[in-house]
Design a protein around this nucleic acid. Structure first.
Lengths: 245, 245
DNA sequence: CGAAATTTTGATTTCGTTCAAGAGATGTGG
DNA sequence: CCACATCTCTTGAACGAAATCAAAATTTCG
């Protein structure tokens, strides 16, 4: 139920930048890799790259769905808001991931940048076209949709049945997975604020903050600053995040 | 956190029945319709039909994923359970719907019959094969996966931010949609028990029961018996279920 | 460096859970 | 087909955990 700072809609919250797929940092992660090189070029012609500043809105709920996006750098959040400002962050989108594909003709949530980010925008029509022509592309999309569905079900269990500290632990474990952080590396960055975490976990900012404090007091994590976590006791964290596979 | 009656594992909880796709009640709803008639026959050879009695287990979490299922009659539930018996009903599966497709090699939840049901079981390998050979089939699967993902996100918002009465209202509206009940028909059946509803909504049985009572007291619904609801004030119900699109 | 925003901590209230018991439905065997 | 036993659902009372309200501490950024 956190009130989010309005996305700054001033002129340069969103800037088109030159496209350079050959040097794309997430090329092998991204859906693009599902296409053979010549067709990847065809895709490239339909794609535009955009720089977003923090809190910029890439799409708004209810708008016609014209593009899908692949994140190159930074982090996006998917946000659903009720009339009375109750908010839910459905998920965070990290580099290499794809967002915005759906049968619905309109967006079902806002897509916003958590931090300054860069995305590739794909024309929906072009995607439909490529889906029809390159089975491998459609195959990749279906695999990803299945994985997203599995993740969504993890989140559902968390929201339905876990206590606040367990939700936070589960979130940290899940995020480490998404970020590809190895079990050996204790450090992790939390680009999003407490409000976003609260709205993702179905809690208030205060409860999230208290949960962080409890994990710290129990020696499970250290908090050099609000945006950096060090996992001191990975086993304990995993134990709390029982929801995880 | 409701303890569920154990699935009766006696001999005939699951029975193979003769297959008759031509007379399938859900033929045009089901994924089968994505294949042209000759190939539908190929599919038919890989499919087996099963009768399940109430609470029979079709799959158990952790088991290798060998089949996916299309429901012909009755109702299934997808259940995730934690070590300490906390339970979540991820979703209910109605006739014409498809379940069990995922990249994961093992099942992530139990698949159980809510009431006596009939399903068609598809070999996972056969599906993979058909996906490769018939783009229209894969296309249908992707569309369905996207829709399931949208639904999952509706549920996430409900779990994260709605009050008990709102959750129940949202559930009733959603179920009516899934069941294809028209706005003109006030009656609906609730095949599942209060425990399943509670575990779907992230509440206790008591709170679900009280929420039903409150909706009844407010004149929004009537409850001829615990398994039948009559929607007296559809507008009020929709208003409460604000989560809905 | 200083102002604004974010995060943390504390006190109080509220709502859903828990515990307990009674009412009603279901289904089995006589 | 009915009586009885069992299971499910509903209702009530007490408790407790998270929300809310309030304010101090810390971080961020111009």
């Amino acid at each position: 139920m956190t009130r989010q700072p309005l996305a700054r809609c001033r002129q340069h919250s969103r800037v088109v930048v030159p496209l350079d797929c050959a040097r794309c940092a997430v090329r092998d992660l991204a859906v693009c890799s599902a296409l053979p090189p010549p067709e990847a070029d065809a895709l490239e012609r339909q794609v535009s790259s955009h720089d977003l500043q923090a809190n910029a809105e890439l799409a708004r709920a209810g708008q016609p769905r014209r593009h899908a996006y692949s994140v190159t750098s930074g982090m996006l959040r998917l946000v659903r808001t009720l009339a009375d400002a109750r908010r839910q962050v459905v998920g965070f989108v990290l580099p290499g991931h794809f967002v915005g594909l759906s049968g619905h003709p309109t967006h079902r949530h806002n897509i916003e940048a958590v931090v300054p980010s860069r995305v590739c925008a794909f024309e929906i029509d072009g995607i439909r076209d490529l889906r029809g022509r390159y089975p491998a592309f459609e195959h990749t999309l279906l695999d990803r949709a299945c994985r997203d569905l599995d993740d969504a079900q993890d989140v559902m269990l968390m929201l339905a049945r876990l206590a606040p500290v367990e939700r936070l632990a589960s979130f940290l474990v899940r995020l480490r997975g998404q970020m590809g952080i190895g079990a050996d590396d204790p450090r992790m960055a939390l680009p999003m604020g407490r409000g976003d975490i609260a709205d993702h976990l179905g809690l208030t900012v205060e409860t999230v903050s208290r949960s962080f404090t409890r994990l710290r007091e129990q020696g499970v994590i250290a908090l050099p600053d609000p945006h950096h976590v060090e996992v001191l006791d990975p086993a304990a964290l995993r134990e709390l995040a029982s929801a995880l596979r």
